[in-house]
Amino acid sequence: MKTIGNSLWLALPVAAAALAFGVAAAPLPPAPSAHPPASPPPANASRGAEVYEAKCGACHSLDANRIGPKHRGVFGRKAGSVPDFHYTPELKKSGIVWTAQNLDKWLQGPVKMVPGTAMGFQLRDAQERADVIAYLKQQSGK
């Protein structure tokens, strides 16, 4: 621990000096593009399962209505149609059917797609969206 601590204290001023002179130790990642790619990246349902648990699992489950409605069978389903879940009128009357394209749009900005919805969570990474959609499609038996 002492060695790590000493190394850290030595490294910090060096890093600070490098930044002050505009010499970054590693290049910063490019800023996210304002324009999503024209076609979604190849999707992977296994990765999607992990993303689903980490980023959707606070509010959703496949087989239980919780903060949000259950998701098994969501792919191809009409929005606002789980019988034992109460939706906002805005989503219920939206007429949306959960296709891959609509799910992708929804996950990018639910409030923008359906103003008045209770879901505000945005999944901004295109790869994660594609993977989650693939997972939901798989779990819907499609």
């Binding site: 648990e53 980490a54 980023k55 606070a58 509010c59 409030v111 505000g120 969570f121 945005q122």
Partner: peptide, 18 residues
């Protein structure tokens, strides 16, 4: 742990919609 991790992501993910 699952709920806490999910909640962290949920709060961060809703910020752009507020």
């Amino acid at each position: 742990l699952k709920l806490e991790k999910g909640a962290t992501n949920a709060y961060l993910g809703v910020i752009p919609s507020l």
